[in-house]
Design a binder for these strands. Structure first.
Lengths: 215, 215
DNA sequence: ACTAACTTGAACATGTCTGTTCGGGTTAAA
DNA sequence: TTTAACCCGAACAGACATGTTCAAGTTAGT
């Protein structure tokens, strides 16, 4: 796919003073093609080979290695771009107001992404150090954490379990739902509601009454 | 590990002058060694090679292939044995009485196993068809399902979400906890309590009051 | 002693991946 | 036109994994 014509492309940002505009445009297009193809193939098979990815990108394997000097580099770039996209979407999500509703909205916005890129994350988990994955997810983790925090202070979320664990629960259920959905065991369109309903109950303090979900 | 001293001896240690029973006893012992070693290595690295497993078992690679004609065969055997062990433990767990307490007991009994064999399951998931894994887990899945069912009929568990999903939630949280625990983000000894507390809340019907956990 | 069951290391056949090198293109700027 | 930045396919190097074959043990039962 993609398949820019033959030949040339330009390059690096370090062409400052003397020369003029870079002919980098081609390279940029190729990089984009490669990342697109990588997402596509890794989504279907976390073990897709670099050769297959290059072919799918309509690019020579050598060219690919020119941009990503190792397979891990490539996977890292794919993960980073994906997470950034997700983060951008989440930026547009209102997380103010009632923490329970904020969480529900956040789940709604995240679900499509998690569902779609499930397998990419799997590939990353196999190939990249856990610490790196954590780092890439940092902003997103923090977002969830903030909501939970607010909910606890407002007394609507439970305070009797480690906050880290509650964050884990949120991510864990999202990914479990994605797996189930991919396996056909869960209705994709209904998943966000189901996840939110489960999470709200799970995060409610013992002794309190579980809120009903408003679809 | 294990490993009879290398020297020349193909056989195992001493064996009592047996009746006319076959000397398959050796083979059986080797199989056990192989499975033990496989569990050990796969627990540390889901990609451990057959050669490494044979070496760790103190057995020739050829011998291993004599018993498990393919890597998938071996992984399957490991998974099956592990699940059977887990099932045996669960058999000894009382699942009668209040479904909430039954679930709590079941989590308590399962936790150690899940925690310990986390990585083995990961290896299986990579190597075996999902359908096979499902089949192997059938009895265990059914056990959880039964408790949830009882809880719903008794009106203590929620009835507004698919039962399949609730089962997923149970397994998902157990495995998420195992990951966190392995990563040092969750106190292993406290995990069972935390999981149970989370699950009880998650399974409680909207409008009802979340039960407190009794440790 | 003979045999059958069981093991073994070595070596081979195959396959697949990653990463590199090489010689030869294409394009756009200078 | 020359040249720099970029691209290509082909082919190689090295690694490592899975299975198989082989010729040569070892041992317990008969």
């Amino acid at each position: 796919m993609a398949a820019t014509p033959r030949g040339a492309g330009p390059r690096s940002p370090q062409r400052p003073a003397a020369p003029l505009m870079e002919r980098r445009a081609d390279a940029r297009r190729n990089i984009a093609s490669i990342l697109d193809a990588a997402v596509l193939l890794l989504s279907r098979d976390a073990d897709a080979s670099v050769a297959d990815i290059a072919k799918a990108a309509g690019v020579g394997r050598v060219t690919l290695y020119g941009h990503f000097s190792t397979r891990a580099d490539l996977v890292d770039a794919v993960l980073t771009r994906t997470v950034e996209q997700a983060d951008a979407i989440l930026d547009a999500t209102d997380t103010a107001g009632d923490p329970r509703q904020a969480l529900t909205r956040l789940v709604g916005a995240s679900w499509q992404i998690v569902h779609r890129f499930r397998s990419v994350l799997q590939a990353a988990q196999r190939e990249l150090p856990a610490e790196r994955i954590r780092a890439v997810h940092d902003r997103i983790l923090h977002r969830v954490q903030t909501i939970i925090d607010r909910g606890r202070q407002a007394g609507v979320f439970r305070d009797d379990l480690p906050e880290e664990w509650l964050v884990t629960v949120v991510f864990s259920l999202m990914h479990a739902a994605a797996e189930d959905s991919a396996a056909g065991a869960l209705d994709t369109d209904d998943a966000a509601r189901i996840i939110a309903a489960t999470l709200l109950a799970a995060l409610t303090a013992p002794g309190a009454t579980v809120p009903t979900v408003n679809p």
